[in-house]
Simulated assay, not measured.
Amino acid sequence: MHTVWKGSISFGLVNIPIKLHTATENKDIKLRQLHKECHTPISYQKVCPGCDKEVKTEDIVKAYEYAKNKFVILDDEELEKLKKENEDKAVEIVDFVKLEEIDPIYFEKSYFIAPDNGGAKAYSLLRKALVESGKIGIAKIIIRSKEQLAVVRVYKDTLLMETIHFPDEVRNVDEVPNVPAEQLVVQKELDTALMLVDQLTTTFDPEKYNDDYRTALMDLIEEKKSGKETVTTTEKQPAATSNVTDLMSALQASLDKTKTKKTTTRKRKPVAAKSTNDKKTTTALKNA
């Protein structure tokens, strides 16, 4: 497994060197967008609409929009300094609570915790303490420049860290529109609903649930591959920049202009122009 974070976790005076590994993965099937005419993958460029030109990475700065079209620019150095001041690569468990006290709406992303060199004994101690107490730890950690609230718990035989949202990141449920108020429920309807719930009640087994859409989509893709319903594209050179395009257009227009002055209707290639045409071509290039 790839290590996404390396540091330590502590509770009390116990310090455990650890590594974090992403516990889940997105299995969505990614579809590319192709040009319908030639089946070339579509590329996306960063373009400044104000200057109407492509912007390079080194010409981009970060900013916070505090009002419509009003920004505060933040330098990379300022952000890096702020990050270092708040990231000491140590995770401190500040509280222990019961898992059922946390509503699932707060949970965000899961990471497996593995002990780093010399951390096996302390790792086992924390794991045992969590199992025996029936509690989970509440901690803070900075991952990818963002401070996260997290819980540390035991999953099977492994310590697991799950980042959770801060309270102000969970929207106010009172703002949900069209939620019906308490209404009188007919007892017979309630009894029928409870009977249905009872019939469908079982022990949770994650292995019985599958992504039917993803399976059907992969079947369709494999079917098309087997039937040779495929297209092939070749890598192409990046398009010329706007300056070069404008220059070539000007040159071509100049050459076309010289052609209209010739008395013969026979087409001539620009590269074949010689002698008396040299002066005209030179003048055309200067005008471009």
Rank of each mutant, 00 (worst) to 15 (best):
V4P: 06
S8Y: 02
I16A: 03
L20T: 02
E25V: 05
E37V: 07
H39W: 03
Y44W: 12
Y44M: 09
Q45I: 05
C51S: 10
C51H: 15
V55E: 08
K56L: 13
E58S: 11
D59M: 03
N69M: 04
V72T: 11
E78M: 02
L79R: 10
E85H: 09
E85S: 09
K98L: 09
P104H: 06
P104G: 06
E108S: 07
S110P: 04
S110N: 14
A122W: 02
Y123K: 02
Y123D: 05
L126W: 01
L126E: 00
K128F: 04
L130T: 07
V131D: 07
A139H: 06
K140S: 06
I143G: 05
K146R: 15
Q148Y: 11
L149S: 09
V152P: 08
Y155N: 15
D157M: 07
T163K: 09
V170R: 02
N172F: 03
K188P: 02
L190N: 08
M195P: 00
M195S: 15
Q199D: 13
T202F: 08
E207R: 12
S226D: 12
G227E: 14
E229M: 08
T233V: 09
T241K: 15
S242H: 10
T245S: 11
D246I: 15
S249P: 02
S254R: 14
D256I: 04
K257G: 15
T260R: 09
T260V: 12
T260M: 08
K267I: 10
K269H: 09
P270R: 02
P270G: 01
S275W: 07
S275D: 15
T276M: 07
T282M: 13
N287W: 01
A288D: 04
